[in-house]
Design a protein around this nucleic acid. Structure first.
Lengths: 350, 350
DNA sequence: CTGAAAGCGCTAACAA
DNA sequence: TTGTTAGCGCTTTCAG
């Protein structure tokens, strides 16, 4: 395990100079720097993060915490985060965090956050006031991906607006009986994402004078299987909706699968729209409100890296990521109305 | 940042004793141990991994490397790994590794593997001889999840057997024209998983005297969208297969979606079988060869943790995980043959 | 521009 | 059973 001493010896300079040279600090003669660099690569030297972390206080690692690996959004953000972190030579700690209080407590009392990572990127977590205070105290850069959290930087879409975009599309098509597949809210998790999207559904309906019926709303937990089950029930009802707005594409897939199982054609008998633009949505022919989680991950990572590099308070407190409507084959005017254009209606892919 | 000194002072013992007491080492009086423990929690002390890593050589972290986040198998294994690592108080480094040589080189020359992690768990990676030697040299425990790799411990299913199970099911149903959706093989990645499953398909066919036709085989890259595209093409051919064996459930979903798009009913017009038992397979009604990646992850993590705990060469070199056939609604005898039982055939969920 | 020295927080002999 | 003494490998003043 070659150490900084070996490089110093090989070069004939002090370890201090080696350290400076390798980290690109000023006040090192070009010649010396080159010599040191050459020796380092020649010897296959890499600095020990433990040692530099201990002495310098920077660990060159950031923790990314997600509630589960089961949702496309989370793992896709992780991929984005990882890509910039790797390029910047940071290592990535992955923390999969259940919603339980003990799990979260452990996280915050853990060495990981206190003495191991230089920053945290949290997904779908709603920090408590105390947690925020802790972060502040330790002076640890933190950013949330998802809906804004008071006092913490964040990047994410405007869920209300995204929901409105989806609903406007459905309403413009002529739908009035519109169902919704929403997410559940666990304590301290994902607080507003699901709520805001559901709220958008409710408001949009009321804005056109429709009071949403209870059985038009069901919980899909942001996962496909429970969403399918919920949709099955919703679609079995007497006055079933002519369209479903799902709070995520994965839940929308569930709706499409449910429709297929009931012999309902999409979009002839049922329109379906989601939010995300999941990697599979195009194959499903799903109309959706597209967001770019990979990019949000990159932005978040860039943000903490910049802050760690000393850039003074670079980013905005809350960065709003763009959304766009992507119309595919899962939405059309409700039965009885003529189609507005020549789109061919295919069989339901679900 | 309270340190071991604070605890020592508060307790009136030396730092060495604190260290011993907290780590549960022998030769500490029960009374002292209690005192130390109390002081530690009271002060909110947590040891610095950098410091103990530097002095002790154990970092209490393991690296898990995966080729991408886009495949259910990988992220699900990660979840299993993470769960036991967390319970054992290890932190998890996530490394997402492209197949490129430079990416892999960087991994091995990185501080991460050399001076930061105590062990590696690799998914879908085929270590080169040199890489294996490096691991050996550093004395770093390593385990592969997936198909066996020479000289490295591994846990995974028998892909040949899994493929045979799938094919036997289809053959027993009476299918003879059976197509296959296989995975691509990138350099150093996933070498045999895809190959073995494809091989199982080919062999099974030949064993019953059928020479697989070229257009019965297509590459799906282990991802749904390309698999769907491939299936679309395969099913458009004149003498299309009556059944498709997909190398993974995600690719099987693609086949089901393709069938639906072509107006083919599953299973009446086309049977589909996969491997995995993906979280969504039940909702798709997909017949599959079930494996348990979460558990494989747990086994892998347990294995390296045990080895790090000094257990001498505990686990077998290669652990074979179980597979079982799960029959659902996507398979049936080919058209023209009577159904063996009273299963109702539903519309294709894809 | 470079070196010497102190110290980051912990563990590991070696004594006591 | 417990304390003392060295480091682990690096960064960081402070001198020069």
């Amino acid at each position: 395990m070659t150490s900084i001493h070996d490089v110093a010896e090989a070069t004939g300079v002090s370890t201090a100079t080696v350290s400076r040279a390798l980290r690109g600090l000023p006040n090192v003669s070009p010649r010396t720097r080159e010599l040191v660099r050459a020796a380092a690569t020649q010897l296959g030297y890499v600095p020990s993060p433990s040692a530099s972390g201990l002495s310098g206080g920077r660990h060159h690692a950031v923790a990314i915490v997600i509630p589960s690996t089961a949702r496309w959004f989370y793992v896709t953000v992780v991929e984005g985060v990882d890509s910039v972190l790797r390029r910047e030579n940071y290592d990535t700690f992955l923390v999969i965090l259940a919603a339980t209080a003990t799990d979260r407590e452990r996280l915050f009392n853990n060495a990981l956050l206190r003495k191991r990572a230089d920053a945290v990127i949290a997904l779908g977590i709603d920090f408590t006031a105390e947690e925020r205070r802790e972060l502040r105290t330790v002076g640890m850069p933190a950013i949330v991906v998802g809906s804004p959290v008071r006092g913490v930087r964040s990047v994410g879409i405007d869920d209300l607006a995204a929901g409105k975009l989806a609903m406007d599309h459905l309403l413009a098509l002529g739908h009035r009986r519109i169902g919704h597949l929403g997410g559940e809210t666990e304590w301290g998790m994902d607080h507003s994402v699901g709520q805001d999207r559901s709220q958008a559904w409710r408001s949009a309906l009321r804005n056109v004078g429709i009071e949403p019926e209870p059985h038009w709303y069901a919980l899909g937990g942001f996962l496909m299987p429970p969403a399918k089950a919920a949709a099955l029930e919703m679609l079995a009802s007497e006055q079933r909706p002519t369209a479903i707005f799902a709070g995520s594409d994965e839940m929308a897939f569930g709706a499409m699968l449910a429709a297929a199982e009931l012999g309902l054609r999409v979009p002839e008998d049922l329109s379906v729209i989601g939010i995300d633009d999941h990697d599979w949505s195009e194959s499903f022919g799903l109309t959706t409100v597209k967001q770019d989680p990979r990019d949000q991950g990159r932005v978040a990572a860039r943000s903490v890296v910049d802050e760690l590099s000393g850039a003074e308070e670079v980013t905005d407190r809350v960065t709003t990521a763009a959304v766009t409507l992507v119309v595919r084959r899962s939405t059309a005017p409700p039965a009885g109305q003529s189609e507005p254009d020549g789109r061919t209606s295919t069989r339901p892919p679900g």
